[in-house]
């Protein structure tokens, strides 16, 4: 792990290595960087980041853009540099699925399960793709989707 790489130049390297898969690279502040990635290449990109010192997957979340799109948002940081990289992958809303990162970052498991139970985004090859914090009966409700109609909850 070369320390000199753990700064914003990682974004230049990232877009050079994955020319077709990385777009809209932006560095809005000294310690934030944003890019859009191709959902099919997410594993390779994350492996590249991990090999270059970005050893902490901080967060996996989802965004719902009805009627046709969903975003999976990854925040990757490093224990040795003050830089947070936000990567967004757009997937179709009618069949939301993306590759799991469990094999690369071990902690991706719970993040992906929570994103799954709240948005219904399926993470392929995640070994434990079931609900984490909701009850089993709520699987399939996807409560954070915009068209969820369960409010108010008169239990």
């Amino acid at each position: 792990m070369g320390d000199e790489k753990i700064d914003k130049t990682i974004m230049i390297e990232l877009s050079n290595t994955f020319k077709d898969a990385v777009s809209d690279v932006d560095v809005p502040s000294p310690n934030r960087a944003v890019a859009r990635i191709d959902p099919g290449k997410v594993k390779e990109i994350m492996q590249f980041l991990l090999d270059n010192g970005f050893d902490h997957l901080s967060c996996v979340s989802g965004v719902d853009y009805p009627p046709d799109k969903m975003d999976v948002v990854y925040h990757v940081t490093s224990y040795s540099a003050p830089l947070v990289i936000t990567l967004k992958a757009s997937i179709p809303r009618d069949d939301p699925n993306i590759d799991s990162l469990c094999g690369i970052y071990w902690n991706a498991n719970w993040y992906e399960r929570e994103t799954y139970e709240l948005y219904g985004i399926k993470f392929n090859d995640c070994p434990y793709m079931k609900v984490l914090l909701l009850t089993e009966e709520m699987e399939g409700d996807w409560p954070l989707r915009k068209d969820y109609a369960g409010y108010p909850d008169l239990t």
């Binding site: 914090l133 909701l134 709520m138 409700d141 409560p143 969820y148 409010y151 108010p152 909850d153």
Partner: peptide, 14 residues
């Protein structure tokens, strides 16, 4: 009553 979580999807309000 559920308080701030009155309209939550996972809180028992009654």
């Amino acid at each position: 009553s559920g308080g701030p979580w009155w309209e939550s999807y996972s809180t028992v309000t009654h």
